[in-house]
Amino acid sequence: MTDSISAKPEDSTLVRVRGLTTVLNGKKVFDALDIDIPRGKITAIMGPSGTGKTTLLKHITGQMRGDAGEVLVDGQNVATLSRDKLFELRERIGYLFQNSALLTDFDVFENVAFPLRQHTELPEVLIRNIVLTKLQAVGLRGAAGLMPTELSGGMARRVALARAIVFDPMLILYDEPFVGLDPIALNQVLKLIRTLNQTLGITSVLVAHELEAIKQVADHIYLIANGKVVAQGDPKTIANDGSPWTRQFFGGDADGPVPFQYPAGDLGVSLGFPGKNA
């Protein structure tokens, strides 16, 4: 795994998606999608609901495979990796689930310690130090003894974040990290994302809808719709690039390139009126 890093030390792009095409249940989710995620930056991926933003993250982690095209993470083609290689790669990727996905069997401490216990034979003292350090980083060292059911949504997400960074990964994927958080919790998570990126240099990919929040942290924004990148740029300029997609998405219009009406036949016909009246 280290050789791939040293192979292309100059490569500033960590994740390279090229011509990705995926068909799910007869619907084309991605249509020759191209995306570059630069090292050490925070990249936000936005788009209307149902455009496959979470699906894109699953392609990056190898949970799903595209029908055509390739996804390169740190120079490795995810779709062709063997199981063991894929698991090696995943150890270097942190993933924050939308619903935190803490293991309900264990308390907070054991949840954060879980990857360490699974992949290392570290002595208990060292595990304790690492876990408490990570919990301190997310501000929940005092909650180490609580069970996941005793946590609020924001706390659970911060624990999940501590778990995602316990191996100091090269890449963190945030899947809807702001959903269901009150403004305080949202700002706490926002601050953590920025801190982790700045202090540890972790490349971050952010899938979210909260434009205001993203504007504060993202270095680069991709807007995906209909399986393609319809707009990209830094937070300040993207909203003004003039395309109808950005106008609708950032303006919040109900109708536009993303239609208000789900595709349907003629209303008059559906209601039983003669076809010519429609």
Partner: peptide, 21 residues
């Protein structure tokens, strides 16, 4: 419930084989 709350997927993401674990 582990599947419904993404715990299985989380294990996959932590490079832990959920069948084995």
């Amino acid at each position: 419930l582990m599947r419904a709350t993404d715990q299985i997927a989380a294990m996959e993401m932590m490079a832990v084989d959920p069948i084995a674990y």
